[in-house]
């Protein structure tokens, strides 16, 4: 059996900033078609620098990026083609939005693809719709809230219909409602076939949402693999200075998911349902302290 070539891959990637600061120290990364990959690591570990390599913004000091198995080139034409396929959304939306109105800003990318005004208008409509912000089309960019700006920034990249959408800390700065809204929209994109890569320091988010996790620490990928496997590896997490996800710890405390036949549930609802079943009374009605006492004593009866 041959494994398919990764859509986008990094091999021995090293990057030294002008001035001598080493940001990436020879890392490998594989991005397969159609997956949701989380690049998980603490703040300041070089995740953003890695993402800037994924669309050719930064050129590695050593090592290479491969697109469809071919080493990436950095001439003008190649970069254009590359950025058409890999869309990058920066963490700070104000770094990306430049036009006066939402609709105009989103139209920038499609026009750069050489599309006609009519096609562009259609792309804008579609991108705004898929992030559920059609009502903002004629609003002035500077009157938007942070969460709205974030969605507009994503729509601006989405309107170019990239194969791979790379997002830098997509949920940073959003409230829980904003996070749910955003993840809902991204989930739809994923189901429509877009490959998603996002960086985060939020272990819970990676656990709940990613197919695969690349554990990132001080400029290297410690390990990459299936979410449950990577986040179950306490030693690796400890080295990356991260804590295991709370849901996983709760499940371990309950003795669930230790064997392969019964994987631990990953959503909050599923874990709560399991707890309810074990405790025999509605968990949501209990004060948090009681839940933990129950857990420590173990299921009674």
């Amino acid at each position: 059996m041959t494994t398919p070539l990764p859509l986008l891959a990094a091999r021995g990637l090293e990057y030294v900033y002008p001035g001598g600061v080493v940001a990436l120290r020879g890392l490998d990364l594989n991005i397969e078609r159609g997956q949701k990959l989380a690049i998980l690591g603490p703040n300041g570990s070089g995740k953003t620098t890695l993402l800037l390599h994924l669309n050719g913004t930064c050129q590695p000091t050593r090592g290479e990026i491969r697109l469809d198995g071919q080493p990436a080139r950095y001439d003008h034409r190649a970069l254009n083609h590359w950025r058409r396929r890999v869309g990058l959304v920066l963490q700070e939306p104000d770094d990306q939005l430049f036009a006066a109105t939402v609709g105009q800003d989103v139209s920038f990318g499609p026009l750069n693809l050489g599309l006609s005004a009519a096609e562009t208008a259609e792309r804008v409509r579609e991108a705004l719709e898929s992030l559920r912000i059609s009502h903002l089309a004629d609003r002035a960019t500077h009157t938007l809230s942070f969460g709205q700006k974030k969605r507009v920034a994503i729509a601006g990249v989405l309107a170019m219909r990239p194969e791979i959408l790379v997002l830098d800390e997509p949920t940073a700065g959003l409230d829980s409602h904003g996070v749910n809204h955003l993840l809902g929209a991204l989930q739809q994109l994923h189901e429509a076939g877009t490959t998603l890569v996002f960086s985060t320091h939020d272990v819970e988010l990676a656990y709940a949402w990613a197919d695969e996790v690349a554990l990132f620490h001080e400029g290297t990928v410690l390990c990459q693999g299936e979410t449950a496997a990577v986040l179950g590896d306490r030693e690796a997490l400890h080295r990356a200075r991260l804590r295991p996800p709370l849901l996983l710890e709760v499940m371990e405390a309950l003795g669930v998911g230790q064997d392969r036949s019964q994987p631990a549930p990953r959503s909050r609802e599923a874990v709560l349902a399991l707890l309810r079943e074990r405790l025999g009374e509605p968990v949501s009605a209990m004060p948090v302290g009681t839940v933990f006492t129950h857990l420590r004593r173990g299921p009674s009866g």
Binding site: D95, A99, T101, G103, Q104, D105, G109, L111, N112, G156
Partner: peptide, 24 residues
Amino acid sequence: EQARRLEIGLMARGYAGELRVLSP
């Protein structure tokens, strides 16, 4: 700094020296 980051953001969307958007 903002100018530098804006350029990265715009290049990611195919910026080639011209800021074209749809006119209202």
